[in-house]
Design a protein around this nucleic acid. Structure first.
Lengths: 124, 124
DNA sequence: TTTGACTATTGACAAAATGTGAATAGTATC
DNA sequence: GATACTATTCACATTTTGTCAATAGTCAAA
């Protein structure tokens, strides 16, 4: 088991068909800075190019991660530009989940590289 | 729309949360050589590192792609090492679906690269 | 000759994830 | 006070996955 052994919490699905990418990206953004849902939706688009993502998906993911203890939320009443916001911060468990996920992202990367190189060979 | 505009058939979901990788990989393998399901399960593991993938997932994906017209199947009775096999071949529609998917895979790659570089910065 | 290991595919049903449309609500601007 | 923008949540139908198991042919050993 050279890499990717799990520390603490984190994703424990053995995937193969579809991989979540929203959760690790959200965790990464929150690891940088606490933020509210709406702002995170915008960051997903601007930082990662994750456009066309329904906000509900993000709010739902945040809810799930809160339930898992990876993030905590605090209401920020009177935030200025609109209704109250829920500001999310990453926990230490969230950090270790992020680390596990980063490992999986790298695994996925390896698969994509394999795909690309085989695909190129096909079109030679 | 600089890249990724769609030709013919292909995936038409606007994803953002989870991305299929089994289908494009299967299409790529079949573009190289017709094969039966069981053999494809093994190739997914050996070529792409897609271990721990329940065979049902693969058979299900194959069924779906057959329904979409991306592949065709023929029974190979008396194949030698076991019960009859269904041998799948890619169609021209399957080839164009593969091309669309390759574009999406590259988009995903871009996102993963963004993730990785931000993640590294975090751990500096 | 029947048992077990391996090859090969399919079915059914519960559980989980997504898609979709909308409701709710505060602030700011015209 | 109408409209646009910010911000979050709910509900329900649909789709996808997970899981367990059924079916079945070949081959080799006991």
């Amino acid at each position: 088991m050279p890499r990717g052994h799990r520390r603490g919490g984190g994703p424990r699905h053995r995937w193969g068909r579809r991989m979540r990418i929203v959760e690790p990206m959200l965790l990464l953004l929150m690891a940088k800075k606490s933020a509210h849902g709406y702002g995170l939706v915008e960051q997903l688009a601007s930082v990662f190019g994750l456009l066309e993502l329904p906000p509900q998906t993000v709010y739902r993911a945040l809810q799930g991660m809160e339930d898992s203890g990876w993030i905590t939320a605090k209401w920020d009443m009177d935030a200025g530009q609109g209704p109250p916001r829920k500001v999310y911060s990453i926990t230490s468990e969230g950090l270790s989940a992020l680390q596990n996920w980063a490992d999986e992202m790298e695994m996925l990367r390896g698969m994509l590289d394999a795909f690309t190189s085989h695909y190129r060979k096909l079109n030679e």
